[in-house]
């Protein structure tokens, strides 16, 4: 039985005010049957002039080295400090990256911060 099979889980929550929405998702990709690779996405949107607009949008890929921690995050869920880390330093870094015209950008600092986030308590 191959151990690694791709799947993704997303969850979006509308704040009680109906004016803010956050979504969090984790995807497990597979380099091969034995090597998973995790990606995490976090989006915070605010209702501005009747439409939800992105305030924060961060996507981090967590490579095979940190698979255990990424898997643990997937099972445990984010804690408050991790959520703050996503909305704070990670978002700040993501906003600095040049426009990508819809394409993914690889950023070593961002990936490093993604690993840092896994250890945040």
């Amino acid at each position: 039985m191959g151990k690694c099979k791709e799947f993704s889980v997303n969850l979006a929550v509308l704040a009680p005010s109906n004016k803010r929405q956050f979504s969090f998702g984790m995807m497990r990709g597979c380099i091969d049957d034995n090597t998973p690779l995790y990606a995490m996405i976090f989006v915070l949107r605010d209702l501005i002039n009747g439409e939800f607009q992105d305030r924060v949008k961060v996507k981090v890929t967590i490579g095979p080295t940190f698979n255990d921690k990424a898997e643990a995050l997937m099972k445990r869920g984010l804690n408050a400090a991790q959520l703050d880390f996503l909305q704070g330093p990670l978002t700040s870094r993501a906003n600095k990256l040049p426009p990508s015209a819809g394409k993914e950008i690889t950023d070593a600092k961002m990936d490093k911060m993604g690993h840092e986030m896994l250890d945040t308590k």
């Binding site: 799947f7 704040a15 005010s17 984790m26 984010l78």
Partner: peptide, 23 residues
């Protein structure tokens, strides 16, 4: 793993919901 991921997603949702109420 599906059930585990659901559990994790719900715990994340709780964290975010607490934050929303906190705001």
């Amino acid at each position: 793993f599906v059930r585990d991921a659901i559990g994790g997603a719900l715990r994340t949702a709780r964290t975010a919901t607490v934050k929303s109420y906190l705001d």
